[in-house]
């Protein structure tokens, strides 16, 4: 049953991710990226991270992609040459080599590795008692209070930085 949901979602994530990097029009790239975000959101639901799934749709598919589309609209970009027609062939080949090497490096160890027994205290039975969102909130305001506060400073700095950079 889990596979029936995982395989289509994973396929959708991979296909839309590839479309992001091969499509020529930045608007289509952005829309494909929205597809990737929705597929990942479904996978988070499959992993019983309901809060993260909802935040993924609201923050990524909502806020961040709107920001991207606004910038595409503001800049009025021309079309880029398709990847396979770019002049700089040697560098493309080096890039492809790096990518293949990285893929092998990541996939081979993961494929040959087996997970050990779970050891944390927040198993599905304890999450079932209070719910995922409550658990996230409780941790955020107890164990992770200082990082949570620092996040607000990061966001404040980002607001000020964006205003200073984009002004005039």
């Amino acid at each position: 049953m889990e596979w029936l949901l995982f395989v289509p979602l994973a396929a959708m994530a991979l296909v839309t991710a590839v479309l992001v990097i091969v499509l020529r029009n930045p608007v289509y790239c952005a829309l494909s990226l929205v597809g990737t975000f929705f597929a990942l959101s479904g996978i988070y639901l499959l992993l019983q991270a309901q809060f993260i799934a909802v935040v993924q749709v609201i923050v990524y598919a909502g806020a961040i992609m709107v920001l991207f589309l606004f910038v595409v609209m503001l800049l009025d970009l021309g079309h880029e040459l398709p990847v396979w027609l770019q002049r700089d062939r040697p560098r493309l080949l080096i890039g492809a080599g790096v990518v293949v090497l990285l893929l092998l490096e990541l996939v081979i160890p993961i494929g040959s590795w087996t997970a050990r027994a779970p050891q944390g205290s927040s198993g599905s039975e304890s999450v079932g008692g209070v719910g995922n969102t409550q658990l996230v909130g409780r941790l955020l305001f107890t164990d992770f209070l200082v990082p949570f506060e620092i996040t607000s400073i990061i966001l404040l700095i980002a607001i000020i930085g964006a205003m200073v950079l984009a002004r005039r």
């Binding site: 992993l47 019983q48 991270a49 809060f51 993260i52 935040v55 993924q56 923050v59 990524y60 806020a63 961040i64 920001l67 991207f68 910038v71 997970a115 779970p118 050891q119 944390g120 205290s121 927040s122 198993g123 599905s124 999450v127 995922n132 658990l135 996230v136 941790l139 955020l140 164990d143 992770f144 990082p147 996040t151 990061i154 966001l155 700095i157 980002a158 607001i159 930085g161 964006a162 205003m163 950079l165 984009a166």
Partner: peptide
């Protein structure tokens, strides 16, 4: 999910916050 620990999901929230900040500054 597989280690039965919520810490990963909290970190994801922080990553999202940093990503939002990064996108705002980067697009500027």
């Amino acid at each position: 999910r597989f280690l039965h620990s919520m810490d990963g999901q909290i970190i994801v929230l922080f990553v999202m916050a940093v990503a939002a900040a990064e996108v705002a500054v980067g697009l500027a």
